[in-house]
Write a protein that binds this DNA or RNA. Structure first.
Lengths: 244, 244
DNA sequence: ATATAAATAGAACGTTCGCTCTTTTTTTCT
DNA sequence: AGAAAAAAAGAGCGAACGTTCTATTTATAT
């Protein structure tokens, strides 16, 4: 058994297993984007479209993470992706729509995977642990997307901003539900459920916002996950219940 | 005594007192900017320069917080500040320098105030409480600056980025020192000092990164401060030592 | 009141941007 | 192999940007 890992959540995925799930999701998502936007995408053949969409999304995330989406010109994207300006415009109708699609599809992957994972847990404690690990592993695997999503939210349309905010609150609600369930069952004791859930989100978010820091210090995502779990459990659980 | 406020840190400032300190600092800082850049600023009279610098900085922060600094054109800044393009360029040599000056002066205010406040505390517990409150109160008063500083760090020069990172690490070191001192005196017990300090920074940062959330929920900065203090103390202090 | 200095105004310049459109290249099908 | 369809290429367009420059207005001093 891994250091610091409690037996209680053996059902949860490891980080490696997570990587594969997301890898597969990426292609599925690009295929979905292709089908949903058949009218605006000028490409007919699915294989060609999916291949280039993956390229475009990845290159956009790469460039946006260093320059910012605004500062990234479509000429930059053209050069780095190897596609001409004309070719790019066969895959989306404009720069704004490109950002919109990336945001939407990312939210979809994340929502699906998180929900699926958390439902595996049975006790509130187990669900809390799984939720923290799953969230952090997602942050790690899709780090560029999370960073992009957070930094570029300002430049979206009002409607898109609402969706991003809603998405944040839904994830937070997941933690609120887990905590409330734990309180009802007598295993948790919390002074302020909403602030507690909000704080959990904040420390999880730090993983992708300050990745340079954790990289420099050689903190692994598993190590960080176990630390955050111990921090939160020390706050929400009476000491005698925390023994393994 | 305020709800949730422990007697131990009566020496710490209230939020209102904090507001005044920063208000005064702003004019002092603009006066310093004027004197330090006398060669590049084309304005001769100090009163005129200081008045317009305050205007320019505040308008820039206002616009940058909604649009982003990149997306803010100098024509936007001209319109909103009431100064013409020509006038603007009498106060700085270019858009990049404007961002640089704002970052530098903000760091200066924050560094000065934080250090001064924390030195007031005597016991590690008191210093930890003061540091958390001071940091949060600063985040609140200078919220637009913090948001600007975080969001626009990518677009600075390499040298400026180093300074921003260094500044983050210095603040973190302050928490590390407090915790280590607490451990040495036997009042704290922590599994990982660096990660603990890092986590404190993360939850403090959330206050200005997600201000919309706390505004909507009507959480006051004082309430948030007391919550974070209770969270951190439950993690770093054995239960028996936390009694008031 | 007038001359001088200081500050502001805003048109003009060169560059780069998002985006379009026609031409060329590649692929597919008979 | 050759015709038709699909995809990629990249020059070109108008708009907006940062920046500069000269003309004009405002303040100061004699």
């Amino acid at each position: 058994m891994k250091k610091g890992r409690t037996e209680i959540s053996a059902a949860a995925l490891t980080y490696q297993e997570f990587r594969n799930i997301v890898e597969v999701s990426m292609e599925k998502i690009c295929r979905a984007v292709f089908h949903e936007n058949r009218d605006s995408i000028k490409i007919k053949k699915e294989e060609v479209a999916v291949k280039n969409l993956i390229n475009i999304f990845n290159t956009t995330l790469e460039l946006s993470n260093t320059l910012g989406f605004q500062a990234m010109s479509l000429r930059d994207l053209s050069r780095e992706s190897g596609l001409s300006m004309g070719a790019l415009y066969s895959y989306f109708t404009g720069k704004d729509e490109l950002a919109k699609i990336i945001q939407e599809q990312g939210r979809r992957i994340i929502g699906d995977i998180l929900k699926e994972q958390v439902e595996k847990g049975e006790s509130p404690r187990e669900r809390l642990q799984i939720a923290i690990r799953a969230h952090l592993f997602l942050n790690e695997v899709m780090q560029k997307w999370f960073y992009f999503s957070f930094m570029e939210a300002r430049n979206l349309s009002r409607a898109e901003q609402k969706l991003a905010i809603e998405s944040e609150l839904v994830t937070e609600s997941m933690f609120i539900d887990i905590i409330e369930c734990g309180i009802a069952r007598g295993s948790f004791r919390v002074s302020n459920t909403v602030l507690t859930a909000s704080t959990i989100k904040a420390v999880l978010q730090d993983w992708y916002l300050k990745r340079w820091k954790y990289l420099r210090r050689k903190v692994s995502v598993e190590e960080y996950a176990e630390f955050i779990i111990s921090l939160i459990e020390s706050f929400v659980m009476p000491k005698e219940k925390r023994a393994k």
